[in-house]
Design a protein around this nucleic acid. Structure first.
Lengths: 193, 193
DNA sequence: CATATTATGGAACGATCAGTCAACAATAAA
DNA sequence: TTTATTGTTGACTGATCGTTCCATAATATG
């Protein structure tokens, strides 16, 4: 009832996401966000709350639209290791394809806001843990299906891949060449052999 | 000649370093720095310039006092791989021993300020390249001394270890337990076998 | 059409930001 | 002891920060 919003909340949330992704939390001003989202102050604060609340909603949306959908592919039946390989290299290619090399919003957030903004950084850590668990599940399945040697430990390897993925994000943001990043990912993945 | 400074520039630079290390670049205010360094504004601006220049000097000091000294140990003669192993686990233990889990100032900087503050982030990237080169030198030496298999490529492995180290920093800031971090480092290091 | 409800737009708020400046203090050189 | 030079101190600046608020506009309901 009453006057309807003139904007789509998810759409403008995406706009906000790209600003935070590019500049990080602190360096992004409400002014930046208002401009990018093409909103006035009242609409933004009424709909999303203050900067912190908006950022938390942006993190949620980032996970839903960009992370979760890809991770959920890992849980589909079928050969596990090829799927895992496809996931990892898809992530790497995706991050390299971004001309701005913004990396990953979650990793950026943990690195910028831990340890002095524990609430927000903690949310990022939770997401990473979920990623590790997704890796664990597919590696456990790979082992059960005989794709992974019986001497390999899925939990250890899941942590290794998670660490490697975060390190790859750092190297991409640091400007490493696409070739070296991909070759390094290949080296890391070879640990599953 | 004339009136001498009442403070030791290196000492107060260390104080500034710890503030930036804890809160990052943007979240650190000049007020924070003045308090920690126990200086007045005039002294700070006269001695170190503005916030950006101060931060660049802090990065230099961080590299000189905390990074460079440890990396230079790698170039000393003797068995290479044990030295490399000692370096990596020393780094990991050191980062884990920090009760605040501040990670590494260089990695923090690259992650916070790339891509929107290219000057500062670029300086961080250079430092990472130097680290990779130090890894390369000791791995090349390890190969020459027969400690590393002839099928192993020092440059590829140097990039792998660099990536792994950065990932480890992320996981430490994300709050991973000391045990899992160390076990993951062990897994990564096993790639040299 | 009248009324209640929600959205919009923008002025305005106090706080804090990074940075400047000038009066004053302390030392070295003459 | 005088003078030149540098350091210290804190008040001050204009800009920008995140946030609030209210008059106005638009829609849904009765």
């Amino acid at each position: 009832m009453a006057r309807p919003k003139e904007f789509n909340p998810d759409e403008v949330l995406d706009k906000a996401m790209h600003v935070f992704w590019h500049k990080g939390y602190e360096a992004t001003s409400m002014e930046d966000l208002l401009t990018a989202m093409d909103l006035n102050r009242g609409s933004l604060y009424d709909t999303f709350g203050d900067k912190r609340q908006l950022f938390l909603k942006v993190m949620d949306r980032y996970c839903t639209t960009l992370v979760g959908s890809k991770f959920s592919l890992l849980d589909q039946p079928g050969p596990a290791l090829p799927k895992l390989r496809q996931f990892i290299f898809g992530m790497v290619e995706g991050a390299l394809a971004d001309p701005q090399r913004r990396g990953c919003l979650i990793a950026n957030t943990v690195m910028e806001l831990a340890p002095h903004e524990k609430d927000i950084a903690g949310k990022g850590s939770q997401v990473m843990k979920m990623g590790e668990d997704a890796f664990f599940r597919i590696l456990a399945r790979a082992k059960a299906q005989g794709e992974l040697g019986p001497d390999k430990d899925p939990r250890t390897l899941a942590r290794f891949l998670t660490t490697m993925m975060q390190g790859t994000i750092v190297m991409i943001k640091a400007g490493a060449s696409a070739d070296t990043v991909k070759q390094t990912a290949e080296t890391a993945f070879s640990i599953l052999d």
